[in-house]
C-alpha cells in the first residue's frame, strides 16, 4: 500500500483538517488505492524531461505602480465570522510561530 495511517494523520495536520480514527483508516484505504494507480507513472523515464508549470507560453506581465481604491473597510470585513474594531477576531494562538 502506498500510504499509511500515520502519513494520513500527518498530512491532515499539515492541511489543518480534524480527522477521526475511522476517517483516517478510510482515507488511507481510498487514497492508497488512488496512489497505487498513480504509481503507473513510474513506468515512464522522465529524467530528462522538463516539468510543465505553465501550459501555454506566458510573457512576464506586470502592472504599473498606481494606487487603486481599496474596499471600504466595512465591506472588507463584512463576511467575517467574528469582527471587532474593524478587525477579524481569531481565538488564542497556542503555537507561537508561523513562517
Amino acid at each position: 500500500m502506498s500510504l499509511t495511517n500515520k502519513e494520513v494523520q500527518h498530512v491532515a495536520r499539515l492541511a489543518r483538517l480534524a480527522i477521526l480514527p475511522p476517517e483516517i483508516a478510510e482515507a488511507t484505504g481510498t487514497l492508497g488505492r488512488v496512489l497505487d494507480y498513480i504509481n503507473l507513472l513510474n513506468e515512464l523515464d522522465t529524467e530528462h524531461v522538463l516539468p510543465t508549470t505553465h501550459v501555454v507560453p506566458l510573457l512576464t506581465t506586470w502592472r504599473e505602480d498606481r494606487v487603486e481604491p481599496s474596499l471600504p473597510p466595512q465591506v472588507a470585513v463584512q463576511n467575517g465570522p467574528e469582527v471587532l474594531s474593524q478587525m477579524f477576531v481569531v481565538p488564542k494562538i497556542l503555537d507561537g510561530g508561523a513562517g
Binding site: R16, L17, A18, G80, P81, E82, P91, K92, L94, D95
Partner: peptide, 24 residues
C-alpha cells in the same frame, strides 16, 4: 478557507482547533 475572514467557522478553544474543526 480557514474561518477567519469569511465563510463558516466552527468555534475552537484555540486557533489550530478552530482551523481544524472549521475545515473538517
Amino acid at each position: 478557507y480557514d474561518g477567519v475572514r469569511y465563510g463558516q467557522r466552527v468555534v475552537g478553544q484555540d486557533l489550530v482547533s478552530m482551523y481544524e474543526s472549521t475545515r473538517a
